[in-house]
Each structure stands twice: as C-alpha cells, then as structure tokens.
Design a binder for these strands. Sequence first.
DNA 1: CTGAAAGCGCTAACAT
DNA 2: ATGTTAGCGCTTTCAG
Lengths: 344, 344
Amino acid sequence: MSNKDERPNRVPTSDDVALLAGVSRSAVSRTFTAGASVAPATREKVISAAKTLGYRVNFLARGLSQQRTNLVALIVSDMDNSLRARTVDFLARGLATLGFRPLLLPTEPGEDVSYLIDMMLNYNVTGTIVTSDTPPAEIAQECAAYGVPLVLINKPEVGTHVSNVSIDTATAGRLAAEELATIGCKRIGIVSQRRASHTIGQRKAAFIATIRALGLDIAGDFQGAVQNYGGGAEAAEAFAESGIAVDGIYCVNDFMALGFLDHFRRLSDLRIPEDIKLIACDDIAEAAWRSYDITSVRQDPKSVADAAITALSRRLEDPEAAQPHVVIPVTLIRRGTTGASDPT
Amino acid sequence: MSNKDERPNRVPTSDDVALLAGVSRSAVSRTFTAGASVAPATREKVISAAKTLGYRVNFLARGLSQQRTNLVALIVSDMDNSLRARTVDFLARGLATLGFRPLLLPTEPGEDVSYLIDMMLNYNVTGTIVTSDTPPAEIAQECAAYGVPLVLINKPEVGTHVSNVSIDTATAGRLAAEELATIGCKRIGIVSQRRASHTIGQRKAAFIATIRALGLDIAGDFQGAVQNYGGGAEAAEAFAESGIAVDGIYCVNDFMALGFLDHFRRLSDLRIPEDIKLIACDDIAEAAWRSYDITSVRQDPKSVADAAITALSRRLEDPEAAQPHVVIPVTLIRRGTTGASDPT
DNA sequence: CTGAAAGCGCTAACAT
DNA sequence: ATGTTAGCGCTTTCAG
C-alpha cells in the first residue's frame, strides 16, 4: 500500500517526509505541532509528502522528548457491572477527545497492586484515574511520590496530591429516606453489603441519619456479602429468615435490589409495592426493566466521567491549583417499587 | 519520598542508577533485560541502587529503541453490554499477564474510524484486537498496510494478515433448533435484530437450516432495531401484533430475550414455558436471574479472550505462521424457559 | 562480563 | 520561517 524505499514495509519517519518534501525534520515536526509557525507553502509540501508516505507522528518518541506521554491509566475493578462499564466507556471516549489515551488496568479486590504501580511508572502515564471499589491507598502514595496526577472516583479523600469526584451520597441517602417517609413508611429495613465500600457506606449513613431525624425506625439491616445480584439474593434470605416486619426498604444499590427483588418474591408472601416499598440507588439500566421497575436515586456516569477528566486536565494545566472535591448531583426516579406509575 | 539529587522530584533514569551503583548504563539495562548476562555481583548492586532510587524502566524509551511498544489496541464498541465488558476485562487482564498493555479505544457504530487508525499508528501499537459489533473493515486494511497484527473477535474473515476468533455459531444455532424440536415444538418463531451483526446472522442461519432439516416450520421472524433489551421489547410488540401462533422461539441473543420476555408477559396471555418454549444465546449472567431463567447457548468470554490473546502472541512470535480461524465451543444450558428445572 | 558509542523518532532551543 | 544541534531514556552492537 505505502510507498517504501529502502527496507520493505518500514514505517515512515519524519526524516523520510522531510526528504521527500525537500525540507528539514524540524519543518515536519512543526507542521504537526499545533500552533507552530510554518509557512503555508512548506506546510503544504510536508502534508502532501506525509500523505503519500502514510506518515504518522510517533507519539512515543514525541512523548520521550516532551516528557509527556498523554497516556492515562484507568484503574478499574468490577467491569462486569454495567454502571462501571459505562463509566469506563465515557472516560475512555472523553479522554480520547482531549488527546489522551486510556491504558486499561483492571484489578480485583485483594489483588496485588504493585503491578499497577509498575505499569503507571513504566509507561510514564501523564495521569491516573481510579474507579474501583477497593481503593488501593498505596497507589495514591506512589502517584504522589512520582508526581503523577491522580483522580479518584467515589473514593475517600487521601491527600493534597489527588483530586476527588464523587456522587452526592449525602443527598442520595437523604432523598431515599425522605421519599419513604413521604409515602408513609414507618418501619424501615436496609439491604446492604457486609463490607461496605466507601460511597455505599456514606449513602447508608446519610439514609439512616435522615430516617432517625424524621423520627422513624430502622427495623433491620439485611446483608449480603457482595454488592451485586447474588448479594441481594442473600439479603432476601436474611430478610425472610429474620421474620422482621418492615414497610419500607432502602437498598444501597440497584444491583443488590435486583437480586433482592427476585428472591424476595420467591421467599415471601408479601408484595412490593403493596406491602413494602423499596428504593435503591444508582438507576442503572436494569432498574427500569419491566420485571423490576425500581424506584432509584440516579447518578449519571457521564457527568462523573466528565468531571474526572476535567479535574485531571486542570491538574495538568496547573499542578498547584486547588483541587476541590467535585460532587455530582443525584435525582430521585420514581417507579413501580414505590407504587409510582410504570412509565412503560 | 524518593532520593532526589539535582532537580527536585525528577524521575530517576538508568543513568542515575548506573552512577549510584558504580556501573555503566549498559549494566543497568542488562539487569532489567530478561536473559541478559550480568555478573551476579553487579546485578545485585544495580538492583539495590534501583530500589533506593525508585527506578523503573521507561518502557516507552525501551520501546523506541526496540521498535516494540507492547501496547495493544483494544477496539471496543457496546461496552454497556455485560458480555462485552467481561470480554474486555478478560482481555485486559490476560494481556497484562503477558506484559502487554491494553490501550482502550471505544467506538460506536457509524463513528469515524480514522481516529482509531491514528491512535494505533501514533502509538505504534504492537497489535490490535477488535471486539465490536460493527467491524470497520478499514481498520483491517490499515493494519495490513502497516504490518500491525490484528485479531478479530466474532467478525468475518477479511484476509491473510488477520486472525479470527469466533464462537461456534453453527453449533449454537443447531443446538437451539435441536432442543426445540426435541421438546416438541412444531411452529417456530425467531426473535432477531433487523440489521444482524456477523455472528448473529450466522447463528440465525444455522438455526433456520437445522429447523428446516428437521422438517419444521419457521412461522415468523419478529424483529427489533438493536440487539439489546429495547430491541427485544420491540420484537415482543411485533410478535403480539402479528397474531402468529408459535410454540417455540429462538432469540438470537440473551439481551433481546430479556426485553422480549418482559414485554411478552405484558402483551400476551400466553405463557412461557407452558405455551411457548424459548431458547436464547450467550448465557450472560442476567439469563440466570430468577425473573428470566432463560435456556441459552453458553459462550465463554474467558475462552474467547484467551484465544484472542494466544492468536496475537503467536502472530508476534512468528509473523508468517498460519492463522487458523479459532472456533470457541458452545454448550446448551437448560433453564426455565424450556421447562427445565429452575436450579435456584 | 562489561563499558563506550551509536541510534530509536521526535522536539526544542538556538542561530540564521 | 527555516535548518542545525543537542538531547529525551533506553538498548545494542562492538571492543575489550
């Protein structure tokens, strides 16, 4: 396809382009550097030579000399969580738009973190974004030590060198509590995971605080090991076994709510929403599915991703700039599990 | 944190390590190169110097001189499809294990492909893996032109320079057809998407061929625009409006089956599995959820990812090696929608 | 086994 | 505006 001169199939370099265009390497470089001064005529020649050769700037070489790779590490766990996957998708696209390239580094709770650090450092990433449930504080330390800007999504604050983006957990918990109270619930149950992650813990705390402030009762906390469908199923069993009577349930996230609903229906004669109202959190796509139709507090993964990217680029522009903890608003979406009309 | 000498916070280079260890840069390089010959004594010195300095090999510089970045482009669409997300997760982890780094390049059907090509080329990726539903043939062309090994997952074969990994669509379609026949279905319906993607089209063709071979009838093909929950919902409406009677349904994937089931229940007085049996394909996690409990033909994303990575590394080791189309086996999982016992 | 030197592809002063 | 020169951090012949 491409014109090759000496070695067969060699990737063309700026030297080749310079030669063909009859200019210097610098001219080529400048042509491909935004805001550099090149005479229109030479630029023309360079562009055309580049095109016939199929030349592309080698960003790695560029990065080497500019000391900036524009690679951004994306540290992710729990990819098979549709909300997480969407967030990652938005992050990757948003980063790409700004000329960054996302390096995907999946990790699992309990996994060795050191390889992540190696990667970040080996590849000289320009920044790192973490969106995983188990936050390796170690990563923050290393990033600080090596001056790599770090953005944490839905994680606790750890220090000055890192930026935080989180959903408004206080409001998330409060909205759910207020709604349950408004629709007349008196004895409240909670569905949660045993080892709560950061934002989940905060949602729950905010929910409980609001419930108490409203003079209502927390009748029980039904738990599952993990915050997913299976965890929700476990919680349903715990609920059924407990024999505790409730008329309202707060479920710390939608995934657990899905499992809880399915297995509540199997194990209990009571009905949702007739006997018990249920509110969950996140408003993932599945929450709107007809079999579930869950009232939920929506968080928008796009806003979260955009905020994270904004925080990162700001840090890059001005490393000294203040890094306020960005809080993404949430909204209550009323659906069938609280008796609101089914929008289908 | 780290010992810094001249500039504050400078990232240590192999020069720094060499200096501290009292050896040459080459010695440092060799210490960090697998299978290079270094005296145990010097290696010792280098390692310790590196540790106190916090030195890490700069893979980009290494890549520049070795002409190999070990970056692998992961071209992905439809990330908010749990099966896709899991595949990407497996790919990323598997690649990481082998010392490759996945560059995540999300794309959407109809989007501009050229930026993907720029990225692959700008970052000198060592290889590319594509797992998106709309396959940009253009990418294959460019990869071939620039000698970048390419692995296509569930895509049609395009040429000699690319490797293919696909699930066994022929068996997938056949198993479903045979099962429906075995359990006594006579009039068969299909739920599919209007513009079928590659493997989906193959599944469907295999299914239809088997049904015909068994002397049965395809009574109707009920379609939705997209192969997801919403598409399944549309198909359910199309089915209800058609008034066509069937006693068995093949759904080209689980996602559509979820939407179909939910809205079939809303729109029809008939029941699954009592009146109509349903089989879908993929066996995603949601298929096993209690509200759906779908009989499905399982494909294992881990096997697919592993095979893709294997194909890529083989290509890298021996660019001339034959590239057989790898076919990943599938198995039928019997559940409630065909009246098999609920395993819950 | 080790060091010196050249070079990977590019950019960034510095002259012109 | 353009070309020259000197690196960016690393690997790799090539001598020794």
